[in-house]
Structures are given as structure tokens and as C-alpha cells.
Computed example of a mutant assay.
Amino acid sequence: MHALTRSGLRQPEVFPVFYGPTPTDSIRNASNTYSLINSVEFHPRENLFCAAFTTVNKLILMKVTQQGKLKTVQVIGNPTAALAEPQHAVFSQDGNKIIAVNWDNATFTIYERLPDGLYASKPVAVIPFPPELKDYKPHGIEISPSGEFLAVAFGVTTRHKKGLALFKYHHAESRLQLLNLIEEAQLPGIPKGIAFSPDESCLLVTFSNINSISVYDLDWAAGAIKVAPRQVFQGALTGLSRPEDIKISAEGDHLIVSNSGANTVTCYHFDKSSNSIGEETPYYILDNPNARIRFPHGISLSADGSVLAITQFGPLEEKDDGNIVFGHRTPRRQAKINIYRREHTRPVFSTGWKSTLSSLLHRLTR
């Protein structure tokens, strides 16, 4: 099917992407103590993902079977792994390396794939943050579509320094070179999630404390992020509520955001020709009770777009400064990862999204 544009030319129609409404499988934290599961990232070619179990210092690789079930493939852990509360981990674009960013000691650790298909438990490189970033705490990271650049969102609470950083990734040498940093004074809020546009000319960033997404142009001649955003996506109708992670579909037509403040995942149309988010209202909301999510955080789409993975913290208290509260008494199994299958039409059981949006609008406009 094609849609008629104002110019009279017919363009391919963009079909909505739906996931759910219920998870096909979930896996809970199996460690002896509670752990935040901050991120999940799919391999660029396989139905395999890497999840960062931050507070128990583990990277856990899982695959999605043909039956839509999760199976643990490998656990990368200390002392060999040199992890220090890994906040987020991503695959290189060829899938042969994993890059993790560590909260506690301000380092990147890189792990190579071995001939047997597993990843080395000892990093091939441990890269300290450059001096400009020594006081920053990382949140989201993203590898560019070309695999040549890495973007990092530094922003966790009001008490921590905030920034956006762009790195050149030298794959062969497993080396990272800081190109540009946008500092806190130039940002509108606390950046959390970050994603490259499909053409690698923009960055999309969620700001959790102001419920917004900003789209920033990249000036590749200068190797810099332009400070003034080209679009600010914000408002009661967006359904954004403490947005965390952000992902663009493989087709480049859809944007998916996790909202820890509303226990939802919202989906939007994305115009990849203009690098802009379309209509203000999400075309679909993955929500409870069917979705079974509480404090959703990291999200990722499989390479073929057939599976959506969501990490969640469970019912944790959040302080006014954005800090979250957990400890040795927090039930360890409330942290988990859910996976959802892609549907070709709106799931017939997911009728709660309208009431979710209505309730959210009521809260935001009181």
C-alpha cells in the first residue's frame, strides 16, 4: 500500500509496529542478592542479547530460541571481567566485541568473541574515561550504524554531572577517542537514553526529569554534537513519563521508549527522511496488566525486529533527586527481563493503552 503525499507522489505507507501484549517469556535475577538490570542489547545479526546486571557485576548473554523462550548462554563476571557496576553494554556492529561502560570506576571494558562463539571473560581493553569525564556517571550508550562512533549519555540524578559525549571507536585497536562533550549548562535536563538516527546524522536523547526527547544534529566536519536541538518532543499527549531507554527499529520508521514513571513502553512513528518524530500521541502503548512490567528500564529490538526485550527493576522507591532505593532486603527476583513477540496487527487483548494514556494525562495536567 502507498499513501498520497501533498506533492501528489505516492510513498510507501508506514505500518505500525506492535509488540505483546503479554511477554512470551521472562527471566528473573538468579543472583544471591538483588541487582539492577540496567540494560539489554541484541546482537546485530543473531537472536542473542547481552544484559548488564549492574550491582552484581555481571554481563549475561541469553538467546531467544525458535520457541520464543530465553536460554542463558554465558555469564561474564569478576574477578576476570574487571567489571565495576556495568551500567550499559553494547555489541560492535560486526558482533565480535562487547563494549561495557562501568559506573563505579569510570572505565570502558571491551570483550572479544572467541572461535567457539562465546566471548572472552577477560577484557581485551580497559579504557579509563578521559580527564574531562572523570566526575561523570554514565547511563545510556549507543554504537553508531557504521560502527565507527559511540555516544554516551551521562545523567542519573540531579546530584550527578550531566553531559552528552561523542567518541570515535577504533575497532581494530579496541580504542575510544573523545571527540566532543556537551556539558550540563547546555542541556535541558537529565539525559538517560541515547540513539543514533538511521543515517547517523542525529542523536535522539531522552531527558527523564522533564519528560522529553531531543533530536540533536551531528556536525561530522567538526566531530561534534550541535548544542541546539533540531526537535524537542514534549507534552502531555506524548505519554512520556520519566523516559529511560530509546530505540529505533531496524527499518528506521519507529521509535520505542521505556517510561519508568508510568510502567509503559510507548511507540511512535519516526520520519527517517527528516529525522523527526511524527505525531505527538503514541500509536501504541505496551502497558499493564498484560505487559507485566514494573519500572521498565533497558529496551532492545532483535536484528529482524521480531522480538522486543525489556529489563525492569520492580517496585523500587525513587527519591526527589532521581536516586532509587534498594538494598539487601530488596527481593532479588523482582528484577527481570521480559521478551515480547512482534504482532502484525494491534494485539486484541491490549485495550488498556487508552485508559493508561488518559490516566497519565490526568496526572500531568492536575
Score class of each variant (00 low, 15 high):
Phe233Met: 01
Ile194Thr: 10
Glu112Asp: 14
Leu218Phe: 06
Ala195Ile: 03
Glu244Gln: 14
Trp220Glu: 05
Phe167Arg: 06
Ile210Gln: 13
Phe167Ile: 05
His160Ser: 05
Ala120Asp: 15
His170Phe: 14
Ser208Lys: 15
Gly235His: 10
Thr206Gln: 09
Val232Pro: 01
Asp135Thr: 05
Thr158Pro: 00
Leu181His: 03
Ser197Asn: 05
Arg175Phe: 04
Asp116Lys: 04
Pro243Ala: 12
Glu200Ala: 14
Val205Asp: 01
Lys122Gln: 09
Ala172Gly: 03
Pro188Leu: 07
Glu173Gly: 10
Leu203Gly: 02
Ala172Gln: 12
Tyr111Lys: 05
Lys192Ser: 09
Glu244Asp: 14
Asn211His: 14
Asp219Ile: 07
Tyr216Asn: 12
Tyr169Ser: 00
Gln234Trp: 06
Thr206Arg: 12
Lys161Gln: 09
Glu142Thr: 14
Ala165His: 11
Lys226Tyr: 01
Thr158Cys: 02
Leu187Met: 00
Pro145Gln: 01
Ser201Asn: 13
Phe233Trp: 08
Phe167Asp: 09
Gln177Thr: 10
Gly155Trp: 03
Lys162Pro: 06
Gln234Thr: 12
Gln177His: 12
Lys137Asn: 13
Phe129Arg: 08
Ile225Pro: 08
Cys202Asp: 12
Ser214Ala: 15
Leu204Glu: 00
Leu203Pro: 03
Gly223Gln: 07
Asn211Cys: 07
Pro138Gly: 02
Phe196Glu: 08
Gly155Tyr: 00
Arg175Leu: 13
Tyr111Asp: 08
Tyr119Phe: 15
Lys134Val: 13
Ala120Asn: 15
Ala224Arg: 15
Arg113Asn: 00
Tyr119Glu: 06
Ser214Ile: 07
Val205Gly: 00
Leu237Asn: 15
Ser197Ile: 00
Gln231Lys: 10
His160Glu: 09
Asp219Trp: 10
Ser121Cys: 08
Ala125Cys: 02
Ser208Leu: 14
Ala185Gly: 07
Leu203Gln: 04
Val227Ala: 15
His170Cys: 11
Leu133Pro: 04
Lys134Arg: 13
His171Asn: 14
Pro145Phe: 02
Tyr169Gly: 02
Leu204His: 02
Val227Pro: 04
Ser241Phe: 03
Val205His: 00
Lys162Tyr: 04
Lys122Thr: 12
Tyr111Glu: 05
Pro188Gly: 08
Leu181Pro: 01
Val215Met: 05
Leu114Ile: 03
Ile141Thr: 06
Ser121Pro: 06
Tyr169His: 07
Leu204Gln: 01
Ser214Gly: 10
Leu150Asp: 01
Ala151Ile: 09
Lys137Gly: 07
Ile141Leu: 12
Leu179Ser: 09
Ile110Ala: 06
Pro198Met: 09
Tyr111Val: 07
Glu148Ser: 14
Asp199Phe: 02
Asp135Leu: 08
Gly189Ile: 08
Ala165Cys: 10
Arg242Gly: 10
Phe196Asn: 00
Pro188Val: 13
Ser144Tyr: 01
Pro138Cys: 07
Gly163Leu: 08
Pro130Ala: 11
Glu142Pro: 00
Gln177Pro: 02
Thr158Tyr: 06
Val156Asn: 13
Gly147Cys: 07
Pro128Cys: 01
Gly155Ala: 06
Leu118Met: 12
Ala195Gly: 06
His139Leu: 11
Asp217Lys: 15
Asn211Arg: 08
Gln231Leu: 05
Tyr216Pro: 05
Ala224Trp: 10
